[in-house]
Design a protein around this nucleic acid. Structure first.
Lengths: 205, 205
DNA sequence: ACATGATTTAACCAAATGGTTAAACAAAGT
DNA sequence: ACTTTGTTTAACCATTTGGTTAAATCATGT
């Protein structure tokens, strides 16, 4: 609210508004008029800065994917012992998503709606991190007998699931179990350590 | 295809078509014309059988939620040892979703878009299963010292995550890792046993 | 044959929606 | 003062979209 009215440029106001609306309603459900209203500007000005809906959506989507994928996931390529890596990944990924709880559902939903459009969109802007190195590390540890035998891909899915899914189920979870915003944050805070321990307990012989 | 043309009634054709379109595009992205085309009928006939889009959507959504929530989740209320219950839940839930891979994303997405509408929709038709009994059972086992100490809710979330999330990430997973339809089915088949074992390994002292 | 009720269709309609236009305004340089 | 250039707006436009209407077709009982 502090800088909202003064020093913020129209383009910034538009991008913020577009972000809110697109994340809440998705590409199909979002309305250009609503974005304009939310930004406190005229609808024509929207098209002045961003030629059309798709271009604006591209911008928001790419920004969302950039926040979600590469930065934190790169941890998986780091040079760390497996357990530390798992702890680090879970913790920092939960951190990122706690600040942007609707990112995962938004991105996964749009990928589902238009899978090829997805690659086209982000191909130029950013490269998705590949989990190969992490998978090989798991394989190594299994072969060395340091951890229980697991399929690396299954383990990767386990970790990803337990980290991301709570944010996707957040609305249902909150409504059905009856947790408010604060309790959910607490739950995810607790989860940073508890889920990591859970995974490691499952691996340690 | 066998009964598509002959004995299938118009209403059935509409419901099937609506299901396909709504699950692929969601409420906002679906078009009544597309549903009519998909069903091979006139658009006016759509409104003859279902007064408007919202009513038709209600029908599909409730049917989807009914398939997703109560039947299988009731396992959690059964009178079974914890580990068997976990195995049973994971296995049968994966079975259900393997036949309807897009159900979870569809439902969770619409809940996110309109949380209060969700309860209103399904309130009359079906009651969401409550996990209390399962949570208490976990608590018991912890207190008895039979399993490692865990927060029941966290464990429940772990199980749910690992079971549901793969279907939500399916499009991204397939595209990014490079898995086709068959490989994905194999992966989820393997997962039925491997993820259950993973969870149990994490619990067993 | 024909009356009756349900089903199906083509043609339409009004509202919503993405996008455009032309004019007004503001800021900065001369 | 006056251009010039970028910014903002009100009014407008074309298409899409959910929904309606009235007529046609079909099935069924008489």
């Amino acid at each position: 609210m502090s800088k909202r009215l003064k020093d913020e440029t129209s383009e910034e106001k538009i991008l913020e508004a577009a972000r809110r609306v697109f994340l809440q309603k998705g590409m199909a459900g979002a309305r250009m008029q609503e974005i304009a209203d939310e930004a406190g500007i005229n609808k024509a000005l929207l098209h002045y800065y961003f030629r059309n809906k798709e271009l604006l959506f591209d911008r928001i989507f790419t920004q969302a994917a950039a926040k979600l994928f590469p930065k934190v996931v790169t941890i998986l390529d780091a040079d760390l012992p497996l357990f530390e890596k798992i702890e680090g990944f879970i913790s920092s990924y939960i951190d990122v998503m706690s600040e942007n709880p609707y990112l995962p559902l938004f991105v996964l939903n749009e990928v589902h709606r238009d899978p090829e459009g997805f690659y086209k969109r982000i191909s130029g802007e950013l490269k998705l991190p590949r989990p190969e190195k992490f998978l090989m590390q798991i394989d190594q540890e299994v072969k060395l007998g340091n951890i229980r035998p697991v399929s690396p891909l299954q383990l990767f899915m386990n970790i990803l699931s337990g980290t991301v899914f709570p944010f996707i189920a957040k609305p249902l979870f909150q409504m059905h179990i009856g947790v408010d915003e604060f309790q959910f944050r607490q739950f995810m805070l607790q989860r940073k350590t508890e889920f990591a321990r859970f995974v490691i307990d499952a691996l340690r012989k």
